[in-house]
């Protein structure tokens, strides 16, 4: 190839790989993760085939995560997985992708795309490496993300309920019961359905849902609210020890959390 003058401002110094790597680690220890990430990138750029390059790629991802630039962390980690799928640190790379998405979750009033990405990535960690310590943390975070998604369903359901769109509200709360039955929103969803059906005047549905709430969450404030609402409206309360036809809420909740 013909020799050409490479424009001066991009002068870069070819440095020994160990010195760059050491500089990066030193930056990291000082807590300036942003520069550390750049230094690790430098290692990989100048010595792509060295043993250090592979490690630097993962460290760059981790530094970007700590520095809060989650998009870079995700792309670095994914590049590591693409190049070294069988490597011993691959589980950590998958985990890093998952927690990077996890950190970008917005509150329930806003777009939940990051929550969905986090959920898929966390489930991948649990599926691929079930008995690593990353999977254990991932399972805990999965419950948190599912709880967050349930929170969004509830906030929209409540919005419809407050405006008197009972049908829309009921279907949103039913969605929480069907798809998020292990989340902390279940008791409230049940109570909201009781409120909706009482407001509609469909008492048999209201009493049935109330009994399931009573059976599964006897101590919860939500059951107290339901109890007060039904007595105020003079609707007979079925005795709580009525056997609901699928008693699995409580058992499934228990084994899921402490299983």
């Amino acid at each position: 190839c013909q020799s050409r003058r490479i424009s001066t401002e991009t002068v870069y110094v070819e440095r020994e790989v160990e010195t760059i790597y050491a500089a990066a680690i030193e930056q990291m220890e000082r807590g300036s993760y942003g520069n550390a990430a750049d230094q690790f990138d430098e290692v990989e750029r100048q010595h792509p085939y060295s043993e250090w390059a592979r490690r630097a790629m993962l460290m760059a991802a981790y530094s970007n995560y700590e520095a809060g630039n989650y998009e870079e962390a995700i792309s670095d980690a994914e590049r590591f997985i693409a190049l070294h799928p069988g490597n011993r640190s691959a589980p950590y790379a998958y985990y890093l992708v998952a927690i990077s998405h996890f950190e970008q979750i917005l509150d329930v009033g806003r777009d939940q795309q990051a929550t969905m990405n986090a959920l898929n990535a966390l489930e991948q960690v649990v599926r691929r490496y079930p008995n690593t310590r990353y999977a254990q943390d991932a399972r805990l975070k999965i419950d948190m993300t599912r709880d967050h998604l349930a929170g969004k369903e509830m906030s929209i359901g409540r919005w419809y309920l407050r405006r008197g769109f009972y049908l829309a509200a009921i279907n949103r709360f039913r969605n929480v019961l069907e798809n998020y039955e292990t989340t902390t929103h279940v008791p409230e969803a049940l109570h909201r359905i009781v409120e909706s059906y009482v407001a509609l005047g469909v008492d048999n549905e209201a009493t049935q849902v109330a009994s399931v709430l009573g059976y599964n969450f006897p101590g919860s404030e939500w059951y107290e609210d339901t109890y007060r609402l039904l007595t105020e409206e003079g609707i007979a309360i079925p005795n709580p020890d009525l056997q609901p036809d699928n008693p699995t809420y409580w058992q499934r909740l228990m084994d899921r959390l402490f299983g």
């Binding site: 509150d107 967050h148 008791p187």
Partner: peptide, 22 residues
């Protein structure tokens, strides 16, 4: 069930907390 069966229900304003700040 018609509109007549409907009742005015005061909704509980407590909400199950979800993380995330304004």
């Amino acid at each position: 069930y018609g509109i007549g069966d409907g009742r005015r229900v005061t909704l509980v304003d407590r909400e199950t907390p979800t993380p995330g700040r304004e």
